[in-house]
Design a protein around this nucleic acid. Sequence first.
DNA 1: ACCCTATGCCGGTCTAGACCGGAAGTCGAC
DNA 2: GTCGACTTCCGGTCTAGACCGGCATAGGGT
Lengths: 257, 257
Amino acid sequence: MTLDARTQDAPPGGKRDLIRGALEELVRASEPGVAIPSERALAEQFKVARMTVRAAVDSLEAMGLIRRVPGRGAYVQHPMLAQPEVLRSFSQDMILRGMVPGAREFHATVEPASAYLADKLGIAAGDDVYAIERVRTADGEPMAVERTNLAAAGFPGLLDHMRVGDSLYDLLAAQYGVQVDSAEQAFTIAELDEADARRLGTAPGAAAFALTQTSRDLSGHVVEFGRSLYRGDRYVVRMQVGKDRTDSRLSRQPAEP
Amino acid sequence: MTLDARTQDAPPGGKRDLIRGALEELVRASEPGVAIPSERALAEQFKVARMTVRAAVDSLEAMGLIRRVPGRGAYVQHPMLAQPEVLRSFSQDMILRGMVPGAREFHATVEPASAYLADKLGIAAGDDVYAIERVRTADGEPMAVERTNLAAAGFPGLLDHMRVGDSLYDLLAAQYGVQVDSAEQAFTIAELDEADARRLGTAPGAAAFALTQTSRDLSGHVVEFGRSLYRGDRYVVRMQVGKDRTDSRLSRQPAEP
DNA sequence: ACCCTATGCCGGTCTAGACCGGAAGTCGAC
DNA sequence: GTCGACTTCCGGTCTAGACCGGCATAGGGT
């Protein structure tokens, strides 16, 4: 089999991706530390140029599945250091944590933007903004009070489309073609006031994570700005951090498998 | 000038990096949204093959400095969405936050590992481990109680080399050739007991970030495991999250500059 | 036994082409 | 005037080579 998609084959994509897929499977089925075939061998096996194989291997390396050592080869890199931080909606986040997401107490309004909010959203003060508040639950128990704001001009009729429990991001993508692409998040510790404590089912004065989040679309425009409160006794902020890999071609080191 | 390093030139590196550097400078001096020269034009200008230019441009795209649109070109992508999360030592972290790092109350011992700790460090229960505790300061004020553990077998004489204020990571790299490459971090909220509150100069019972961290070297072995406390009133956990970009060649979208 | 060099494999980098499909501008036909 | 068809430029992908320096190992020479 020659891997020659594009001529008669299905829609998979380029040979790059086919090879990447094959290698990924191989790697996931291997023990950490074992070497994968050399690039030249793979090129011959798949009947493609070495550059193509390299592109596929680059991809695996970027995913952290393998580790390359110049002059020696490439080795399976298990720990599988959970993939780098990825943007997740509340629902996705909870599912990943093994809980069932939900929502209640939906509350949404349209109001003129304060100077602060206008600045954060990149609009003029006084422009209409949506203010959406929900109590998010995990396994039926309150987990967070989610408060978010969006410029009303960009999403006409949003509040009509939206229902409790809906994923905001999914709705933005489906109805307005807006893909949230990245977000800046800052967690601080806040003391719950009486109202929020009641919403979360905890004691007033309990400590909570206050998450301030700014989400942007592909072109860097702010889509959403909000400040949510997560129960300190139920939530954990996890992150996987790696060395600066601005250019993966820098700072290698020998080390053995 | 032909950019032909490797023959007579200085040690910079490959043409790839030279071009990347030149482009980076250009991009940083440009307004967001403007197009950079086409790959073919750059290849001719620098007298290199287009594949070489592409490698440089790939690099810029990975850094988030530009955005490529198939069939149209590549555009400067300012917001400069602060680079993704990067592993930083306490000192680097504080400097980045505009404060002056310091340390006091250095305390270090060698003791046999508990079953829990042995599991975390990947050694046998009872093996010697270092337990290092420091109060870290920012601008002279206590910021965190840092507690960390390392397998003693891997770093003979560590406590003799180390002095208050030294960067542990720098020391590991310089003395033992061990590069910390990645870390898993989990933040929870903890209530400070009397002793820790005194160390941090806050009231007992105040809320703090409890950071549990596991650091690994390039080959995935655990280097360090620790649990530190950060003052809730002074510390902010920031993260920049992006969409899943397992393969940047997927899910593009038109959009205009 | 020991060191040292020759050889061959490996990844890293680069070249000079090629074809594809998307996007955009031009221009003539309707 | 409007709307297709054509041309041109662009990034995306791929090829079939090439040379470099690191690295491991098998042999030889000492």
